[in-house]
Design a binder for these strands. Structure first.
Lengths: 236, 236
DNA sequence: TTACTGTACTCTGTATACAGTTGCCGAATC
DNA sequence: GATTCGGCAACTGTATACAGAGTACAGTAA
C-alpha cells in the first residue's frame, strides 16, 4: 500500500498508524535507502500534522531504520556490505538459540504453521519466476524465521530478532529484485522444519547454521554484483 | 544526577537531553519499575514543554524501558523472573559471539582498558562493602561487558547487547541493593580478560559462558529471596 | 570572472492551545 | 447504606504557531 493521504483511520492513534505506514514504506522499498525524509512533506502526504510524524520518526530512529545526519537531516538507513555481514553474524548467534528453544517450546499449532510455510515456499519456487513471486518468497522467508523466533517462547529473543530481520529486509528488498537464487530456501527450510518438528535440537541448530551461512554467502555475492552495476548500496 | 529543573543545557536538543535524563533516571532506580509516568509532570520537573518529553518517551517505549497500558497510561517497565532468564539466554548467545570477535578485533588500547577495569573491580571488592561500592561494582561490571562488545568491532552486535544490558540493569539495580554476592565478578572477569588478551577465542567463549551461567544462577536466587520478602518484582 | 554578502526560503525544535477521553467524586435516589 | 448518574479534573492526542538555524541564490564589488 503506497504512502498516500487518508489511508489512515481514526480507530488507532495517528502516531501508531504513521509509524506503521513509514516502516512499511521503508521495508517495502517505497522509500529507498538514503532518501531524505522531510517532516513537513510526510505530514502533507499522510494528511496529518507534524506531531505524529515526529514521534514516529523518533521511533524509527531508535530502531536505526532512519538515521540522522549532523545537521539534523533525516534519511532512510542504508545497509552496507559490512553491515550485512555483521547482521548475519548476529542472526547466527540468535537464531541458533531460537531453533533450540523452539524444539523445546513450540506448540503443535506453530509446528503446523511452519509446515504450511515450507510447503507454500516449495509451491512458489516451482511457479514461473517474476518479481512478484520473488517478493512473496522473501516475505515467506522472513515469516518462517519470525515464526521460529516466536515458537521459542522467548519474548526478548523475538524482539531482538525482529529488529535484525527488519534491517535485513531493508537490504534484501533491493538484492532480490533480479536474482531469485539468493532465495534458495527450498531444501534448507524443510530441513529446519523437520528437525524442529522432531524436537531434535542438535539437528535444528546445525540446519539453521547451514542455512544462514549459505544465505550470507549468497547475499554477499549478490551485493558484489550489484555494486559493480549500480551504486545503490554503498560500502561502509 | 537527580532529575531536576534546568539541569539541561541548550547545546544539545532538549529532546535528546530529556531522553538521556529519563533513561538515566530509570536505570539508576530513581524512577522505579511500575511507576507511572505523566507527561505534564515530567515536563514541569524538567522545565521543558511536553513535546520533547513525548518524543523521548516514544523512544523509551520502543526500547521497552517504558511500557504503555491499554488506557494509554505509561509506566516504567518491570522485569519479571522469566524475563530475567530469557534475557540471560540472549546474552549467552550474543556475548559468546562478542568475545570471539573481540579476540580477533580488539585493539591494544581496548585490551588495556579491559585490564584496568578488571583491576579496578578487584580493588573495589577488597574495600569495605557498602551500597555505594555495590553500585560501583555493578557499573563496572556493565562497563566491562560493553567494552567487550565494542571490541568485537561488530556495531550491530553492540547495539543489540546495549539494549539487553539496559534491561538487565533495570533489574539488577534492585537486586544488588543488599547482596553484593550477586556480583562475584572477581575471578570470572579476569579469566575472560586473559583469554581475550591472549586472543584465545575458545577459552574466551568458555569463560564468558561460565560467567553468565553462574551470574544467571546468582541473580535468579537473589530474585527468589526478594520475592519472599517484598513484592517489588512481580512474576510474569 | 570570482568572491563576498545580504536576503529569502525551507526546515527543524519547541511551546502551547484545544479537543476528546478516562476516571473519580459527590450528590441524589432507591 | 448502596448505587447510579452528572460533572469536574487530569491526561493524552493532535494541530499549529513561532523562532532560530541552515542554505541557496542573486546582486554587487573587486
Amino acid at each position: 500500500m503506497p504512502l498516500s493521504p487518508r489511508s489512515l483511520q481514526r480507530n488507532q492513534s495517528l502516531q501508531e498508524q504513521t509509524y506503521q505506514a513509514l516502516r512499511t514504506a521503508i521495508l517495502s522499498g517505497e522509500l529507498t535507502p538514503g532518501q531524505r525524509l522531510v517532516e513537513t512533506h510526510l505530514a502533507k502526504k499522510l494528511q496529518v500534522s507534524r506531531t505524529p510524524i515526529r514521534e514516529a520518526l523518533r521511533q524509527l530512529q531508535r530502531e536505526e531504520l532512519v538515521v540522522v545526519e549532523p545537521n539534523n537531516i533525516l534519511r532512510v538507513a542504508t545497509i552496507s556490505m559490512s553491515d550485512a555481514v555483521q547482521l548475519y553474524d548476529c542472526r547466527l548467534a540468535l537464531e541458533q538459540l531460537s531453533v533450540a528453544e523452539a524444539c523445546e517450546n513450540a506448540t503443535e499449532a506453530q509446528i503446523q504453521n511452519l509446515n504450511m510455510m515450507v510447503m507454500q515456499a516449495e509451491k512458489l519456487i516451482n511457479s514461473r519466476p517474476s518479481q512478484l513471486t520473488n517478493f512473496q518468497l522473501l516475505d515467506l522467508d522472513y515469516r518462517f524465521h519470525r515464526l521460529l523466533a516466536e515458537s521459542s517462547g522467548n519474548l526478548w529473543l523475538r524482539s531482538l530478532l525482529d529488529q535484525v530481520f527488519d534491517k535485513m529486509m531493508l537490504l534484501r528488498i533491493h538484492t532480490i529484485q533480479n536474482n531469485r537464487d539468493v532465495l534458495e530456501i527450498r531444501t534448507e527450510h524443510r530441513r529446519i522444519y523437520e528437525a524442529v518438528q522432531a524436537r531434535n535440537s542438535d539437528a535444528a541448530t546445525q540446519a539453521i547454521k547451514a542455512h544462514l551461512v549459505a544465505s550470507k554467502e549468497r547475499v554477499v555475492r549478490e551485493m558484489k554484483n550489484l555494486q559493480q552495476t549500480r551504486g545503490i548500496v554503498q560500502e561502509g
